[in-house]
Simulated scan of single mutants.
Amino acid sequence: MSEDTVGLAPAGPFPPAERAAVYRAIRERRDVRGQFRPDPIDPALLRRLLQAAHDGPSVGLSQPWNFILLRDPALRARLHAAFQTANAEAAARFPDRAALYSSLKLEGILQAPLNLCITCDRTRGGAHVLGRTHDPSTDLYSTACAVQNLWLAARAEGIGVGWVSIFRPEDLRSILRLPDHVVPVAYLCLGHVRELHTQPELQARGWGRRLPLDDLIFEDSWDSRPTA
C-alpha cells in the first residue's frame, strides 16, 4: 500500500491545556493500595478505560492482550489467599527491613470493586509477527504499553489503579484457568478512590526514592554522559 492511499492527519502539538493534562496524568499517576471506595465503576467509564488500553501500540499490530474482569467474591478470595502465600515468601527476602515491609499495604484485591488481569497471548498474530522476528519479548512489552495506557486514562477519570505483582505465576494461571500460551502480565485493582498520595507511596514511606533523571541519561554508548 502506498503512502498516498493511507489516511493521514496533520501532525503537531496539542493545545497547551490539553498538553498539560497529559503531563499531569503522567506526573500524578499513583499505585493505589488502600484508598478504594466500594461504589462500582460505571460501565461506560470502564469501557473507556479498556478502549484506552486497546488503543495501545503493539508489535506488528498483533494486539496480544486480553482483559479478564474479576468481580466474583469467592474467586477474589482465592486470589487474595494466593497473594498472601507469595507475600510471606517475599517478606522473608527483606529481613533487614521486615518491620517496614510488614507495614506496607501491597494490594487491594478484596477492597477494590473491580480486579482486572491483563494477559498476553504469545500466539496472537501467528508464528511470525512483523517486528517480533528477532525479539520474541516484544509482545510482552506491547501488553505493558496497554497497561500504562489504561493507568493514565484511569488517572484522568479519577479511578485508582493498583498493580499487584506479588503472585506465583502458576497460581494465577491455575486460578484463572489460563491456557499455556497465555501469560498473565498485570493483575490490577481498580476503583474510585478517596485520595491519592502526593508522591509515590514507597517514597513517602521511606522504602525508596525517585532517581535524578540526569543520572540516567547516556549518549551514544553505555555510561557516556551527554556533552551538553
Rank of each mutant, 00 (worst) to 15 (best):
M1L: 14
G7E: 10
A9K: 12
P10C: 02
A11Q: 08
G12T: 05
G12N: 07
P13V: 02
P16F: 03
E18W: 06
R19E: 13
A21C: 03
I26G: 01
E28C: 05
V32N: 02
R33L: 07
Q35A: 15
F36G: 00
P38T: 10
D39A: 14
I41R: 05
I41P: 03
D42P: 00
P43T: 01
P43V: 05
A44R: 13
L45A: 06
L46T: 00
L46G: 04
L46S: 01
L49E: 04
Q51L: 13
Q51Y: 08
Q51H: 13
A53Y: 02
H54K: 02
S58K: 01
I68F: 13
I68N: 01
R71V: 04
R76E: 04
A77P: 02
L79D: 12
Q84S: 15
A88E: 15
A90N: 11
A91S: 12
R93W: 03
R93T: 07
F94A: 12
P95I: 08
D96R: 05
R97K: 14
R97F: 05
L100V: 09
Y101E: 14
S102Y: 02
S103R: 10
L106R: 15
G108N: 05
I109P: 08
L110N: 11
Q111M: 05
P113H: 03
N115D: 12
L116R: 02
C117H: 08
T119C: 02
D121C: 01
D121Q: 05
R122C: 12
R132A: 15
S137R: 15
S137A: 15
T138L: 15
D139Y: 00
L140S: 10
S142Y: 04
A144H: 08
V147T: 13
N149G: 14
L150V: 04
W151C: 04
L152V: 11
A153H: 09
R155P: 04
A156Q: 04
I159F: 06
G160A: 02
I166Q: 12
F167N: 12
R168V: 06
P169H: 01
S174V: 05
I175V: 15
L176I: 03
L176D: 03
P179F: 03
P179L: 01
D180V: 13
V182R: 05
V185M: 07
V185Q: 01
G191D: 02
H192Q: 11
R194L: 07
T198K: 13
Q199K: 07
E201Q: 01
E201R: 03
L202P: 09
L202S: 10
R205A: 08
W207G: 04
W207Y: 10
G208E: 14
L211M: 13
L211A: 14
L216N: 11
F218A: 13
F218Y: 14
S221M: 02
W222F: 15
S224H: 14
P226N: 05
P226K: 08
P226W: 05
T227D: 13
